[in-house]
């Protein structure tokens, strides 16, 4: 069963800006769905359309099998929403705000009060529960938003960039929480950083310039992004190392970048062997190795670019996609 289904979802603002273009999105029940894309790709627009905060220019949104509209309160009662940098009524403190949200959802006092106390404890805001929300830090504000999104014990959580503006500890806390909540709820979480959420998602949707260019299982996504690219952070005679790489028989493409070298290995499973040979060369060149970084994010960018180039091959493809309108799976999702 699908919790969210969008059909040809399009949003054009004032006939000036195309924020979303024919997105066909499917979020199965019980999954953690990551909506990924750079800033301005259309993630927040998609989420606002899913919640009925905005109306689509074309296409439709179905949540729990019913059409989402601005007045579909019975559907939103089953959703927990966390906006990016959430804004709360200034004159409230966390207790008053959670109580207010609980009352909006019609939760009876004997359920609401214990639940808000438990949530404040769970998100670590007990000590700040009497502070005005406008005095809370970004991390605390996000944690209050998380608590508010859980006050109605929703079946579906929609979190828009929950890690935005958080320090590493806050990011880890949020990612761990998504993992934990994902065991019993359906979650749609957006981020401009795939690496942030990839490990907790079952499904991924990639938005680029308003177009959903990929939607499908994470495994399918990683199959495309697994290109074995890493970056070595070095100090010393890097030029000497490059000279050795130039003449070595190691099967690797390399680029000299800043204080290091970027390596791209083949996808045939020989990466460990080839990398050990490169490290041997590093040792022989007398270069100090400080760190090895994964280039997953860059690979996602490359992935997006590849798909867009692929798509640009002709109008026939677009026409075919329009005819396929139902369901999104695999490449060429839009």
């Amino acid at each position: 069963m699908n919790i969210i289904t969008t059909h040809n979802l399009t949003k054009i603002y004032k006939n000036k800006h195309i924020a979303l273009n024919g997105a066909n999105l499917t979020v199965p029940k019980g999954t953690v769905f990551g909506l990924v894309g750079p800033n301005g790709a259309g993630k927040t627009t998609t989420i606002r359309l899913l919640l009925g905060l905005q109306s689509p220019t074309a296409g439709d949104v179905r949540v729990f099998g019913e059409r989402m509209t601005p007045n579909a309160t019975h559907l939103r009662r089953r959703i927990g929403f966390l906006p990016t940098y959430p804004r709360f009524p200034k004159d409230m403190n966390p207790i008053l705000y959670l109580d207010f949200v609980g009352r909006i959802f019609g939760i009876p006092t004997d359920v609401r009060k214990p639940r808000l106390a438990a949530l404040l404890r769970a998100v670590g805001l007990l000590s700040a529960s009497s502070q005005k929300v406008q005095t809370l830090s970004t991390g605390m504000t996000t944690r209050l938003g998380i608590a508010a999104s859980l006050i109605n014990d929703p079946e579906l959580l929609i979190w828009d960039e929950p890690t935005a503006g958080l320090d590493p500890e806050g990011r880890k806390y949020t990612i761990d929480l998504i993992q934990e909540l994902g065991q019993e709820k359906t979650i749609l979480v957006s981020s401009h950083n795939l690496a942030d959420i990839q490990k907790v998602c079952d499904y991924i949707g990639i938005l680029s310039e308003g177009k959903l260019i990929f939607s499908g299982p994470v495994e399918e996504m990683t199959r495309f992004t697994r290109s074995g690219a890493i970056e070595l952070e070095l100090e010393g005679d890097i030029e000497g190392l490059c000279a050795r790489l130039e003449v070595s028989p190691i099967e690797v493409e390399w680029d000299r970048i800043g204080k290091g070298v970027q390596l791209r290995f083949k996808r045939d499973g020989t990466m460990a062997v080839e990398l050990s040979k490169v490290l041997q060369l590093v040792n022989e060149a007398g270069v100090t190795l400080y760190a090895i970084h994964s280039l997953q994010d860059e690979m996602v960018d490359a992935f997006i670019q590849l798909l867009e180039e692929e798509r640009a091959h002709g109008f026939s493809r677009i026409l075919r996609v329009e005819n396929e309108a139902n369901g999104v799976s695999g490449i060429d999702a839009g």
Binding site: R48, L51, L53, P70, N71, T73, H74, R76, R77, I79, F81, P83, P86, R87, F88, P89, Y97, F100, V101, I104, F105, G106, G145, A148, N152
Partner: peptide
């Protein structure tokens, strides 16, 4: 004056526009 708060805190919950 509530243009930001209204979407984040009120109308994204179970409150109709009316």
């Amino acid at each position: 004056s509530e243009s930001g708060v209204v979407a984040d805190s009120i109308l994204s919950k179970s409150v109709t526009r009316y």
